[in-house]
Write a protein that binds this DNA or RNA. Structure first.
Lengths: 226, 226
DNA sequence: ACGGTTTCTAAGCGATCGCTTAGTTTCGGA
DNA sequence: TCCGAAACTAAGCGATCGCTTAGAAACCGT
């Protein structure tokens, strides 16, 4: 399966309130069909007839629910970006220590790109097909994500637990690790999303030279922080 | 600019020897036009008329030189993959120490994905549009690259200079770092391809916990390897 | 300077594209 | 039980797709 289903799509995009129930179901079926097809063949490689057929409808039925093919992509991209951002925000809120925050954020981020690989592919690799207005809105969400990651690194640096030469580039690199999972991951392989999340969280801590300082049980002592 | 130009494309793909000179120039112009368009709008988002226009020819002229649009993609993908692989092979050959090899290979790999971003985008993100036969050939090249990276990590581990929990996953992660550069890099930004190469090489060494062992100046002693 | 080959274009083929129109079926509330 | 709204389909519009055909122009070895 693919994580939680799309149903209801977090919040309305600001459009028509519509009838309900039956139409809502059709709308979700169309989103799911479009998602699968966009992920597999790309936005431009997918025809509206592909989507309609996968959703079990006639080609014209698509346009009862969505004004354009691009609107389907936009809603999928928007929902996916919101999902990722809120998962990261939640992970930050669950902890206070910079290292715990970074570990959990990266774990969530990388694991999501595996577990929801189909959605993640569309989120990460179909942005170029968005309308300019929609693209700008999505770009803002992506800036949030990048800003959050930079903030984590700087907080860890300021707390003296991370050592980072170039925080912006390191933030980008850590995000790259997670994003690229959507490209190579295949479900049913030897690595579970959770395993990937754990390993990638560890790697992120390696990249910031994290060295726990609190209880110096019987390890080497660190002479200074900076 | 975009690294070395495409001219002559390393070696023939096995097809017609053709006339020469004038046709060769037209063929290169078409490859360059297709490359730019595939990178910007994707294979399916590019029409043969786009390519012809960008190359300054009529739509029909494309088919004098290439039998299908997919053949253009295949030759670009093939040339790009060969380029990457040979750069990595050369970097390995220039050194003997595992750490030097890894550093140079990652440096080349990451810097190439920035410097030749247009080509790298097509190489990394348009594989799904290849014919099955062509895709299989390209997949073999990609396996070479992944195998080389794993080999480097295992050699470093065996030499006792790297510590790697999961070599296959770490190899994948290091490649991910470089590959994803093709997605986010924009020329003219604050980071040069060389800077990116240097930083990413450093990060790769962090991921394998590289600690130079030779002169144990006044550092902590490592008790054992495994 | 001529003949054969290569390169190129104008025109267009059938297929498919995103999307619309006109009209039918299905549904839930009064 | 009936009615207006919502959901749906059959058919098809004009545009564009990848690619082909027929024939004109440019080129090169002799």
């Amino acid at each position: 399966m693919e994580e939680r289903k799309l149903g209801t799509m977090s919040q309305d995009t600001g459009r028509a309130p519509r009838g309900n129930a039956r139409g809502e179901l059709a709308r979700v079926r169309l989103l799911e069909a479009a998602l699968e097809s966009f992920a597999r063949k790309g936005f431009h490689g997918t025809s509206t007839r592909d989507i309609a057929e996968a959703a079990g409808m006639s080609p014209a039925a698509v346009y009862v629910h969505y004004p354009t093919k691009e609107q389907l992509l936009y809603e999928l991209s928007r929902a996916g970006h919101h999902k990722v951002r809120s998962r990261m925000d939640d992970a930050v809120a669950r902890h206070t220590e910079p290292a715990d925050r970074l570990r959990e954020v990266v774990r969530e981020f990388a694991a999501w790109h595996a577990r929801s690989q189909v959605q993640a592919r569309v989120v990460q690799y179909e942005m170029a097909a968005l309308d300019p207005g929609h693209a700008a809105e999505i770009a803002a969400l992506r800036r949030d994500i990048e800003t959050l990651m930079r903030r984590l690194l700087i907080d860890g640096h300021d707390a003296g637990v991370f050592r980072v030469d170039d925080p912006p580039m390191t933030a980008l690199a850590i995000l790259s690790l997670g994003i690229d999972v959507a490209r190579w991951y295949r479900p049913g392989g030897e690595w579970s999303p959770e395993r990937i999340g754990d390993q990638y969280a560890r790697m992120a801590l390696d990249l910031v030279h994290y060295a726990p300082k609190a209880p110096p049980s019987r390890r080497r002592s660190r002479s200074s922080g900076a």
